[in-house]
Design a protein around this nucleic acid. Structure first.
Lengths: 258, 258
DNA sequence: ACAAAAGTGTTTAATTTACACCCATGT
DNA sequence: ACATGGGTGTAAATTAAACACTTTTGT
């Protein structure tokens, strides 16, 4: 029994999970994409290795026959980033009969799937990670992964461009209802970093003073006696996120506004 | 080729859709449940025929190989209620490996499924209908369907009790973000009916005057020169819902609150 | 007449918005 | 010295919350 077959043995060929993993680098909101196995590497003008166009996809895989959907997503996330999941939310199932639309997709499925012609429904999750904690170039797993700014995502396999768009909408929706996204920031962060992140996710500008007042009133950010270092301007105070206070904030606030 | 086989021919045995159909009768929020095929009818103390305990389930079925998930849900809704879908929203996929947990579930699957042992992932939708428009007793299709108040749902097949709970949460969430649920009311309705509906979905009481002011300010309810009739108290003015104004309200309000 | 829900305004508190200048730091 | 982002307060407008009595209708 070859490796391929072993790999397939307990996978359900009809259902997969895909993860839209967001990362924040203080400038852009990024999505983690992987290069499909038979893909090749092109070098661009800056001499950075870049996965070739069309061979990029979201990290995802078929579920195992004996695992729950959430477990499958967590497993994939772990396999691809080696991080335990910080935040992982199912947001939509995608099942267009022709998700594997083009020849490249079908070829790829033939090479790696037990039942390449099976229709696949995928259950999509999004996840937030600290970009600094997952450097694809340095990591031994997933050498063929890279961060891409959400504002310039290349053409992806299957319906993954759609999935990314919907993930962003889901994240935005989440943020409209409850403050979220601390998983995207380092343990100690400035309010400007947080504000920039919010602006990116929401796609709007937020007024500095009002943002500060409103977010601090919620009482789950604790100011540290510590400041930024090495910045060419007045150093900002660092804050940290108090998960317990956050939870009690969330249960308090309900808040069924009509 | 027998009927059974024909029925199964183009169904995907691995993926189903389930619909949580909410209906409002001015008193309770109800869910439409169907009796599974081999089920029997018990008469209760009031002499009303009631589907027998344990044989009840959400309306749902496997998807066809050539249809999208949303189409499948719409088709099932149409097949079971004969109504074109008024509002239909995917809210979650359920895929616990042991969804068909007990003997009754497995027996039933053996009797009606092409691959009774296949693991099934179900994609759940919720839908709002006017209860008055769908009287299961009078209808020729789905004779074995009945409305059950969400506050007293009996034990259902598979994980359908869980699915109903999650559907209610999804509906509640939706209502927190945007006024919704007009599909549950008759074309002409009073503000008290609307308020009662909101209270049911949200699980809170809403103050009469404030509710009225707030909902009317949104400008998508139009007052009619018409009143209730035959009520043993002052007749309430009837309102109707203006879909166009509602849409412009929705696009206006964005409203990315931090 | 009475029971039952409809309808109506005001006051107070809380929240939101808009807005401009000085401060600390690295180069 | 200068460029850069950090940090701060207030006034005005809007929105939310609490609250009680009169009206209409059927019985």
């Amino acid at each position: 029994m070859g490796l391929e077959v072993m790999r397939h043995r307990d996978l359900n060929p009809h259902v997969s999970v895909d993860c839209v993993i967001f990362g924040f680098d203080n400038v852009d909101l990024n999505v983690l994409l992987i290069e499909r196995e038979e893909g090749y590497i092109e070098e661009n003008a800056n001499n950075n290795a870049q996965p070739a166009r069309g061979s990029l996809a979201l990290p995802g895989d078929h579920i195992r026959e004996d695992e729950k959907l959430d477990q499958a997503a967590a497993r994939v996330l772990k396999e691809l980033t080696n991080l335990d999941n910080i935040f992982l939310e199912q947001f939509h199932a995608f099942g267009h009969p022709n998700r594997a639309k083009n020849e490249a997709d079908r070829q790829w499925m033939k090479s790696v799937r037990a039942e390449p012609d099976a229709r696949v429904i995928t259950v999509a999750y999004f996840s937030l990670v600290r970009l600094e904690m997952y450097n694809p170039k340095a990591s031994s797993f997933a050498k063929h992964a890279a961060w891409f700014p959400v504002s310039s995502i290349p053409e992806l396999a299957f319906d993954h461009n759609l999935i990314v768009r919907r993930a962003l909408e889901a994240l935005r929706n989440q943020l409209k209802n409850e403050p979220v996204g601390f998983e995207l920031l380092p343990p100690k962060f400035t309010l400007s970093q947080l504000r920039r992140l919010y602006e990116l996710i929401l796609g709007t500008e937020l007024e500095k003073r009002n943002f500060r007042r409103k977010i601090l009133k919620k009482n789950f950010l604790v100011p540290l006696d510590e400041k930024q270092k090495g910045v060419p301007h007045r150093a900002a105070r660092l804050f940290t996120f108090d998960k317990d206070k956050y939870e009690s904030f969330k249960t308090d606030k309900y808040d069924f506004s009509i």
